[in-house]
Design a protein around this nucleic acid. Structure first.
Length: 152
DNA sequence: GCCAACGTTGGC
DNA sequence: GCCAACGTTGGC
């Protein structure tokens, strides 16, 4: 089983939207590294931190769980969608999604600044300057360490 | 709103 | 296949 951190802007799709849906399709990723994570590394049962980006403050707000195999992102074929990709052919879909299920919302957001000050968590990928991946792996040590923070 | 970082595009 | 220009992400 693997651990992940997945970013979303709360104005677009925040953890409360996931709570309302219970299970949501993680649509709109248009980055090949992320596509390959979905394709090769995501497994049903994997756990992920829900990270609010472009928020005040940005940070980790909860936990969700992968509940599907990867499958083609329907928004890439939808001309009405913000995520429409006219160069992706249905017989050879370029972009994938997974379904994520709500697990837990923290009592407080754990701000990025707090992660950057933490002796273990400061080395997380999300703390790296200029880091732009919206989905990234988390080690088990980082996972367990961060899980203890919102209760403090 | 600024801007650093970095992925993507496209000319050659 | 190099690399400059461009666009986007996302923290601040």
């Amino acid at each position: 089983m693997s651990y992940w951190l997945m970013k979303s802007e709360p104005d677009t799709y925040g953890i409360d939207d996931l709570i309302a849906q219970e299970r949501g399709m993680w649509e709109g990723c248009r980055n090949y590294t992320v596509r390959n994570f979905f394709k090769n590394d995501f497994r049903i049962g994997d756990l992920a931190f829900f990270h609010h980006s472009n928020a005040k403050p940005s940070g980790v707000i909860g936990v969700m769980k992968c509940v599907s195999e990867p499958y083609p992102d329907p928004t890439q074929f939808d001309p009405e969608s913000h995520y429409y990709d006219p160069s992706s052919r249905p017989e050879r879909p370029r972009w994938l999604v997974v379904d994520m299920e709500f697990v837990r919302k923290f009592d407080r957001i754990v701000p990025l600044a707090e992660l950057k000050e933490h002796p273990v968590l400061k080395d997380m990928w999300v703390c790296r300057k200029g880091q732009r991946l919206s989905v990234m792996p988390v080690t088990e040590h980082e996972w367990q360490t961060l899980l203890a923070l919102p209760g403090i």
